[in-house]
Computed example of a mutant assay.
Amino acid sequence: MTNHIALFEPLMPANTGNIARTCAGTDTVLHLIRPLGFSLDDKHMKRAGLDYWDKVNVQIHDDLDDFLAAVADPKYLYLITKFSDKIYTDVDYSDTAKDHYFLFGKETTGLPEKFMRENQEKCLRIPMTDNIRALNLSNTCALVIYEVVRQQHFVGMELTHRYQHDKLH
């Protein structure tokens, strides 16, 4: 079982760097769908991801169709958008025998409307007030993937972290 976060045409290197760090912390594959709004060696992206880039499985896709061809089972593909009646916490992600894919849209325009309308049954939303247009992309990715790993009982994750004994004295 593997969880996947896919970013459709991400624009902001700091968001992508933060998302990469979340992927490293949750052992989630990160998919980047071109065109990207930055260079992969952008200093802001590297700084946001800190020194975790070597711990992230990053896959680059030329376009949305290229990414969709890489999805193991389209039944487990979810589109994260504000245009849905289904809430992300209402889905059962506990099947650890399956790969789960979460596709997030571009920071400015989200996912292509035609694509979302054609796949409405895959659309999920995070509840929020109407005071804002959308949540920050990196925060949204963190909310969703941590719900997924919570339902999967944090398999492979460190549940308790202890101070080293000699540092306490």
Rank of each mutant, 00 (worst) to 15 (best):
M1T: 04
T2L: 15
H4F: 04
H4A: 07
I5K: 01
L11M: 14
M12G: 13
M12Y: 06
P13L: 01
A14I: 14
N15F: 02
N18V: 02
A20H: 03
R21E: 04
C23P: 14
A24G: 15
A24N: 07
T26N: 02
T28L: 05
V29Q: 10
L30I: 05
L30R: 03
H31M: 01
I33F: 05
R34Y: 11
R34D: 13
L36F: 15
L36R: 07
G37V: 00
G37F: 02
F38Q: 01
S39W: 06
L40H: 15
D42R: 02
H44P: 01
K46W: 01
A48E: 07
G49F: 00
W53K: 11
D54K: 08
D54I: 07
K55F: 08
L64Q: 10
L68Q: 15
V71N: 15
L77C: 13
F83N: 09
F83H: 09
D85L: 05
K86Y: 14
K86P: 08
K86N: 14
I87R: 12
Y88D: 00
T89Q: 10
D90E: 01
D90I: 00
S94W: 09
K98D: 06
G110K: 12
P112L: 13
E113R: 09
K114L: 09
F115Q: 09
M116I: 15
E118K: 08
E121L: 10
C123Q: 11
M128E: 02
M128L: 11
D130L: 11
I132C: 04
A134E: 10
N136M: 01
N139E: 12
T140G: 06
C141P: 13
V148W: 03
V148N: 00
Q151I: 14
H153F: 11
V155Q: 14
T160R: 09
T160E: 14
R162K: 08
R162A: 12
Y163V: 05
D166K: 07
K167F: 13
L168T: 03
H169L: 09
H169W: 07
